[in-house]
């Protein structure tokens, strides 16, 4: 089924995500070339990983006072609306042929363990072009203080 602009404006969420410190560490380790585990792989951080991303003592001395998330941890807490749109039976996308085409984030607040983040999203583009479907979802995530933490623009391409 081809995507049509009639889906633009469709909304998903709110999705709530509660941030845990070990998850932040595991994410930072995996992105920085390490293993997201404190078990068999040992617990030494990957080379050059910024201390405020994994070291509690160093982070306590920083301006943030606690371990913070890599900015791109937004891919975890803010993905709800994008995945809901992709799986929406009314859109009828062939998930097997889906690839992530483009991604954009604007980061407005740092994220710390204990934050409760709420994300909503809206389809802003749904077109079929040259045998491919293009789906764009824009998201906004706010924290428990009501402050905007991140905006995301997520684009999937469904090949043939």
């Amino acid at each position: 089924m081809a995507l049509s602009p009639s889906f633009v404006g469709r909304k998903y969420g709110p999705f709530t995500y509660e941030v845990g410190v070990e998850k932040l560490r595991e994410f930072a380790y995996a992105v920085a070339g390490g293993v997201p585990s404190l078990a068999f792989a040992g617990n030494s951080p990957p080379d050059g990983l910024l201390p405020v991303l994994h070291d509690k003592a160093a982070a306590a001395q920083s301006a943030y006072g606690a371990i913070v998330a890599m900015p791109n941890f937004a891919v975890v807490y803010a993905i709800g609306p994008f995945s809901a749109a992709i799986m929406d039976p009314e859109l009828g996308l062939n998930v097997m042929m889906l690839v992530h085409g483009e991604q954009e984030f604007e980061f407005l607040e740092v994220v710390r363990a204990g934050d409760v983040l709420t994300t909503t999203g809206t389809i802003t583009r749904a077109v079929s072009k040259a045998g491919k479907d293009f789906l764009t979802v824009q998201t906004e995530s706010t924290n428990q203080h009501g402050r905007l933490v991140a905006r995301g623009t997520w684009t999937a391409v469904i090949r043939g």
Binding site: L50, G101, E102
Partner: peptide
């Protein structure tokens, strides 16, 4: 980029096409 800036809180945006 955050290694270059020395601080993850200084990263304010990213845009990529895969």
């Amino acid at each position: 980029f955050q290694r270059y800036l020395g601080d993850p809180g200084k990263v304010r945006g990213v845009r990529v096409r895969f």
